[in-house]
Amino acid sequence: MPKLELQAVRKSFGDLQVLRGVDLTVAEGELVCLIGSSGSGKSTLLRTVNLLTPIDDGAILLDGTDISLPDQDPRPIREQIGIVFQSYNLFPHMTALDNVLLAPRRVHREPDSSLLPRARELFVRFGLGDHMHHWPDQLSGGQQQRVAIVRALAMNPGIMLFDEITSALDPELVGEVLGVLAQLKRDGMTMLIATHELSFAAEVADKVCFLHAGVILEEGRPREIFENPKEVRTRSFLERVR
């Protein structure tokens, strides 16, 4: 059973059909990269998985259970799905540590004595050991984005979604954030990543999916997609972004 499966997912905003029947599977421990031009619906797709955007039709299965049905409490589902956004979205009125601890404190209601060691371990693992008590505006973009990743990981999600998390970063900071993703992959995390970093995708992805005109037009191993795309649309997209 795949960790995550989208079946014929449709989503429109008014007259704009953004997703027109998306089928996508992410297996346990797999790293799937979602590529496609700007405005093709990558963010929308990730947000539907996270239940921030309700879908119009289709199904989204997490561990085989449909999570897209209306009238269920989204909270326990969101807990199992971490998401990191392009713009970090750290809470500016809290230190990095409090950003990370907020959800475990409120949702799991565990005492700090049991939460702190794990949080500290995450900070250290991602090279942020010295920055736990800093405020977001005292951190570089790359550090903020890594804190945002730690914040999502602190809830122990079974799958992580990343929405162009390096797009807002200065070029010299991109590497440290991509490094975190590679590290997560080694740890066996299941990941769905919308990205423009094609060389990164080529290097670490198990599967690359090309989203175009509301459907996954082509998918396959990175080598197949990047070196030998079957669809002419895929080829012209790759030519444009390379």
Partner: peptide, 23 residues
């Protein structure tokens, strides 16, 4: 985006208001 970030962590609407938006 602040609300969304908080919601996506599994916080309830009222916790989002109390801990993220209001402060």
């Amino acid at each position: 985006s602040q609300r969304n970030a908080a919601l996506s962590l599994g916080l309830s609407q009222s916790d989002v208001m109390r801990y993220v938006v209001l402060p």
